[in-house]
């Protein structure tokens, strides 16, 4: 089901973006974890109290108790959501729609390779990239936490948290992949593949800001990823992650089916 030559070629195409986003994540994760300090926490809490809406909109809340709670507040509201999401958008669009739009997909379909194999391979490239990014973030968090604050991090809890994060990004990748398979024009593929996740994120920010805008949380899939809930062991948070994972599977299968059946004007 995988064409290895294509997989290798496309993974090479992912490397540059992976390095860029890896570097950004390295910078933020190392700086933020090193900032963990009960004294500092008090100061940040005072910020959060002074301007709760602004801080909350990017997921930063007061009363982040331990190291993991601190990381949830300052990494899982913006940095670890937005940068892997950008990776999904850029790669998702480039893997199918860009080739169809430019016509270079001719080289791929004018060969004894099933379209399903092509689509599955491209999906695997996207999923590999997402898994690599989240895996890298996890290892980085472990190293930074263990070197700065030995023994403070609950490792299994971190794995659970990042498992949920992975489900979220697989789902976002699924949206981008389906958009990429659906549209033969990069314009529309980007508009929906980037537009939907970005709009959903804005809704999430609104909902976080609280007040009457909190209802917005019912209209965004980001609600399904609930870091605090995962850490608190709530079953609804686990269910949310499962829903995201199942949704991702449906989106990828749909994308592959669409690509298999679509007319290619190339």
């Amino acid at each position: 089901m995988t064409n290895m030559a294509l997989y290798r070629h496309e993974m090479k195409g992912s490397v540059k973006l992976l390095i860029i986003f890896g570097a950004i994540i390295t910078m933020y994760v190392s700086i933020i974890i090193s900032m963990y300090d009960p004294e500092m926490m008090k100061m940040l809490d005072s910020f959060a109290e002074a301007m709760p809406e602004l801080m909350a909109s990017v997921g930063m809340k007061a009363d982040a108790a331990d190291l993991l709670g601190f990381m949830v507040s300052y990494l899982y509201g913006f940095i670890l959501l937005v940068f892997p999401m950008l990776f999904c958008i850029l790669r998702g669009n480039a893997l199918i729609a860009k080739y169809v739009d430019k016509g270079s997909v001719v080289s791929l379909v004018a060969a004894p390779v099933k379209r399903r194999t092509i689509a599955v391979t491209q999906m695997e490239v996207l999923v590999s990239g997402i898994v690599l990014l989240i895996l890298y973030a996890t290892i980085l968090e472990l190293i930074c936490a263990e070197s700065g604050f030995p023994g403070e991090l609950e490792v299994t809890e971190l794995f659970k948290l990042n498992g949920g994060l992975l489900c979220l990004h697989l789902f976002i990748g699924g949206i981008c992949f389906l958009a990429s398979c659906l549209f033969s024009d990069v314009k529309y593929s980007v508009a929906s593949g980037a537009g939907i996740p970005a709009f959903m994120y804005v809704l999430q920010m609104l909902a976080n800001a609280g007040g009457s805008a909190e209802k917005a949380k019912y209209f965004t899939f980001f609600t399904l990823f609930n870091p605090d809930g995962i850490l608190a062991g709530e079953s609804s948070a686990a269910a949310g992650a499962i829903v995201l994972f199942a949704g991702a599977a449906v989106l990828y299968v749909l994308g592959i089916m669409v690509f298999e059946r679509k007319d290619l004007h190339i």
Binding site: V109, A110, P112
Partner: peptide
Amino acid sequence: RDKVQAVLGYLP
């Protein structure tokens, strides 16, 4: 089409 493509050479 994948079986057809095995015996085909195509210049777009």
